[in-house]
Amino acid sequence: MTTKEYNQCVADLSDGIFRFALKHLRDEYEAENVVQNTFEKLWVRKENVEMATAKAFLFKITYNNCIDILRKSNRSGSLEEVSEVHYSHSRQYSDAMEIVKKAVDNLPEAQKTAVMLRDYEGYDYRTIGEITGTTEAQVKINIFRARQFLKKYLKDLYAVI
């Protein structure tokens, strides 16, 4: 990868990387650090990274960074942690998209990662598996469970409203 290609990656992918980190960490400062760290690693390794694989490379680094940070701070969510409190907080949101955005925060990290890479980045199951170190089947199940949860979240909320 040349310097020009690296800069192209910055221009094209830094927003997505930042969004991905921000959604996981829910902390702008930490997310910015992850972006800096991720692109620094790309820069250091750019001779060995092809332009075609740069996006997956960046997301993999970002994912690993986020997981490390979340583990250290013991912040990762789980499905069991979703409580009525979360539902009640969501009443203020008026449309489904806002509700779903809020609900995504309550997903376990593996499901959140999978569904975000699928919907935001348009990755197939295989690539998501490569980024997260899981099988295609696991990725599909994670996305299914994430959508199941989001659907139930929406359904229950509408029932309350």
């Binding site: 310097t3 020009k4 690296y6 930042f18 910015e32 998209m97 779903v100 569904v115 959508r147 659907k151």
Partner: peptide, 26 residues
Amino acid sequence: EQFQHTVLKPEAIVYHNKSSLIKEEK
């Protein structure tokens, strides 16, 4: 219909510090 709502729509989140990542060409 509810399943269709579970598809996340990309949000306009912008990383404003791109310039710090850009490397000058030689």
